[in-house]
Amino acid sequence: MQFSLDFPTNIIELITTSLTWGFLIYGIYYYYQKQNRKPKIWKACVAMLVGLFAFSLDFAILGTIIKIPILPIGVWLLLWYAKGKPGAWDKYRSFAWLGFIGNFIFVVAAIVSVLFHNLIYPKSDLETYISTMEEHAMLVAIHPSAEEVTFDSDSFKQHFSSFKEEPFDSIEWYNDINFNMEPADREEIFPYVLTGTSSKWGSGLPTIIYVERDGKGLIVDSSERQRYFRGEESFLKGGGK
């Protein structure tokens, strides 16, 4: 499972999630202090956790899935459970509702973390995806039409800032190759993958970078939507072009 261990962590999400839990723990403390009839602290925690349980609807906003809580299932469960125990509901009600409210805080946290993520890791900036390069960064040919070229890291670094995001038409690319050429004659537009680079620290963006035949273009595929970058100079050495 080393595969998941070295998986890059989204630091923004980590922080907002931690803050949300911190807030809920503080909430328990707050209501505990406020109440005259003290509940058992561990029971208050359980009431809060059960209160979190809700029926929610999924909405896609800003490229993530947001769960809007609708029905406080957990609160109802506790209410039903407390029915037979006089006084119990008064003691634990606020904690159960705190749990349900917690769902909304998680929604806010998710939206905030996406906004901050976009601010700190601009998605139309190549540096977000290629921020550090290992010594052995290299090209891997992925198609028979690839040529004998190597990666010129000096040239790449030198012209790095010239890479700008551009719109692209995937249908045109696909049709130009698949409808106009017999399989044996097909040349892939992106016959290499650039490996040995990593995205900006804390962004949590795993990437695969496809390199264009002329060495001036990159498709960056990540958990975000795909981006196409074009630069001014080729960073390929050797080959026919």
């Binding site: 992925i142 198609h143 719109p167 692209f168 038409d169 995937s170 249908i171 690319w173 696909y174 190759i177 698949n178 097909r186 892939e188 537009i189 992106f190 016959p191 496809y210 498709i219 595929d221 939507r225 795909q226």
Partner: peptide, 16 residues
């Protein structure tokens, strides 16, 4: 090789 378009967002998968 593949492509995918949704809400004007394009995705192109090179032939490997």
């Amino acid at each position: 090789r593949n492509y995918f378009v949704s809400n004007n967002v394009h995705t192109y998968t090179p032939h490997v």
